[in-house]
Design a protein around this nucleic acid. Structure first.
Ligand code: FES
Ligand code: FES
Lengths: 153, 153
DNA sequence: CTATTCCCTACGGAATTTCTAGGAAAAACA
DNA sequence: TGTTTTTCCTAGAAATTCCGTAGGGAATAG
């Protein structure tokens, strides 16, 4: 399960992704729109900033925007920054690998083989989905929903 | 990430799955073989027992065995018992659904749509893999490894 | 030089996780 | 019957992680 922190990060990033990228948004604006605890969100955006996902400017007229085009930011990147490994077990993580203390022979471990496939499935989805793609999907679904409801009148 | 508890459960179940199913194994035997904390494992097997995954007998000659054939016990079942939802967010869980407080419109939520696919990918792997399948895979890999190493001589 | 806004550290409380202790209940055996 | 073995059950200790908040410093604009 993703942490709240990670979910909030994704919510904030989706807001920024829908915005014009040279239009800065205030932390308080994002927090209000998405109904998130402001101080916590501040810390989250700071961390995203340090990791090159968003950029910021301080002072009057300051705020946050994406640091790069929305199609270059994937859900996988964000989750890794916020929560660490995508993998269900550290021993199958690519980016955050750690050996299993209990298992004597990693190569023979059947559980590991199963979890490796799970990891790949997760990584496949999350690394294959950018913010831009999620926005586009959302628009497409909204459009078909609107069409269906107007056809029903 | 799976909890230790869940990992230990899977390790114990793999041991039982490799054993003849009417041969009872002691908790202490399993704990020693897999290098697991005994008392903790005891609690885990108890929970698996309550959920119909293993069966037990007390007293001398007692112990644990699988409650049903190894091809009817899936990794998905075990993980759900031990850790709850497979899904990365409660709002996309099938068996442990909970609404997201922050998101106003669930149907419009883009994050939800992405995470729904992730959930399906995870569930697909975990529900599609039984203990029996994992054992069989392990044997197959061991056999090809042995063949390769003997061919290299 | 004042107001705004992000930056940074530290910390508090709650929840969760990872076990362990200690004994009751069942079953086998002598 | 009584002794031993083994699971069953409750309670809780210790450590860690999670979810935020407080309070002030640093940059920026006007
Ligand atoms: S090596 Fe990680 S589960 Fe066995
Ligand atoms: S509804 Fe669950 S993330 Fe939006």
């Amino acid at each position: 399960m993703l942490s709240q922190k990670c979910k909030y990060a994704l919510q904030a990033l989706m807001v920024l992704a829908k915005e014009n990228s040279d239009n800065l948004l205030l932390v308080s604006e994002i927090a209000e729109r998405e109904n998130l605890p402001k101080k916590f969100l501040e810390a989250i955006l700071l961390e995203l900033n340090r990791n090159g996902i968003v950029r910021s400017r301080r002072g009057r007229g300051g705020g946050y925007a994406l640091a790069k085009p929305a199609d270059l930011i994937t859900f996988g990147q964000v989750v890794r920054i916020m929560d660490g490994a995508l993998a269900p077990l550290a021993c199958v993580s690519v980016n955050y690998y750690r050996r299993c203390d209990e298992c004597k022979d990693e190569q023979a471990c059947e559980i590991r083989r199963v979890m490796r496939r799970v990891r790949d499935a997760i990584a496949n989805e999350l690394d294959g989905t950018s913010l831009a793609k999620a926005v586009a999907e959302g628009k497409a679904v909204a459009a078909t929903l609107a069409a269906a409801s107007s056809a029903a009148e």
